[in-house]
Design a protein around this nucleic acid. Sequence first.
DNA 1: AAATTATGACACATCGTATATCATAACTCT
DNA 2: AGAGTTATGATATACGATGTGTCATAATTT
Lengths: 197, 197
Amino acid sequence: MTKVDRRIKRTQRLLGDSLIALMLEKGYENVTIKDITEHADVAYVTFFRHYKDKDELLTARLNELITELAERINELAQAEIGEAAIQIAFEHARDNQQLYRVLFSSPGTVRVREELKTIYAERLIQTCAPRAPEGSVIPFEIAANHIAAATFELIHWWLKHDMPYSTQKMGRIYLELVERATWQALQITETEPYSES
Amino acid sequence: MTKVDRRIKRTQRLLGDSLIALMLEKGYENVTIKDITEHADVAYVTFFRHYKDKDELLTARLNELITELAERINELAQAEIGEAAIQIAFEHARDNQQLYRVLFSSPGTVRVREELKTIYAERLIQTCAPRAPEGSVIPFEIAANHIAAATFELIHWWLKHDMPYSTQKMGRIYLELVERATWQALQITETEPYSES
DNA sequence: AAATTATGACACATCGTATATCATAACTCT
DNA sequence: AGAGTTATGATATACGATGTGTCATAATTT
């Protein structure tokens, strides 16, 4: 294990912090490398000595946050899925509002979001699939993906509309619209008759 | 109703077709305006006489695609084939597979996707909101957004996994997981007791 | 046939990305 | 503490993409 040069750590930290700060300020796409290096008070050329492009810096800088979020998701999936857990998620989104906003709205972060969604869905499959009913019309993989996507979407909608409802209310909505609705849909088997409401 | 100049229609068609062709070839982000105009055999400046940027062209072209989809649904509905509208959507996705894939996976198309989702949600609000029950726990705006997002997500999942189920099966899944599930969740009112499954 | 207008060709400005070189300062290692 | 190593800053430069302006010409409309 080779020791990392102090200057390298310093530069990379400055660049990473600057990207985050500028993203919150003007959005990922609108941040230029020149912006980053100026904000970090580092020579323009230095950027390319560390990263190939903006995406590489974002990924590197976001890795720790992804881990934190993954842990949070892990908690949520492992916990007996209930009101408390999902409310914590909304609270977390509210507390890290700006960052969540950027992550949801910046095109450049799509890959990261997809990754998170997949991780969430896979955890759901591992923890909940055994309890799912046999012979459902809906493959559990689809249901898990649906839940993961719908959850993110709900948080996204909430932030996009400036949090018009309380975290309690959103937790309730999540329970009914996403969790309970999906679970009930899973109960439907091939042989079960389909009747209109 | 003013008549549209033939040259305008010709140019816009050429530009739109070129963008689609190049997207499928190298991905949306990697297509330059110069690429488009060269492929269309049109002067570079002409692009800006019609569109502000790439996004605007893509949106315009996708609107045509949606119109086409809507027409197909109308035709088949009139022909009384008894095929659910959603199934036609899955068939449309299958037939225009490459385009849908690019649309779903290219980071650059996020804004356009968001726009499409909003349009879909708003349409749902206009057409279905009057029939929604009073005093639901779930605001109809959220339900509409949920349906729109979940529908896109379902198609996305299906294409991403190389269409492992038939369009009939996917239509059924959509009906249960998205439409029926959401509608039933909307029935829940504040006063209604909440019981665990 | 005349008026209108979309287009092509060319020039040009601006901006962001990316690389090369070299002196200097900061750091590591012994 | 000193010698060797290496990251950085400054500068120059090339390149590609976006975007605007002008004017003659060709296509279209009325």
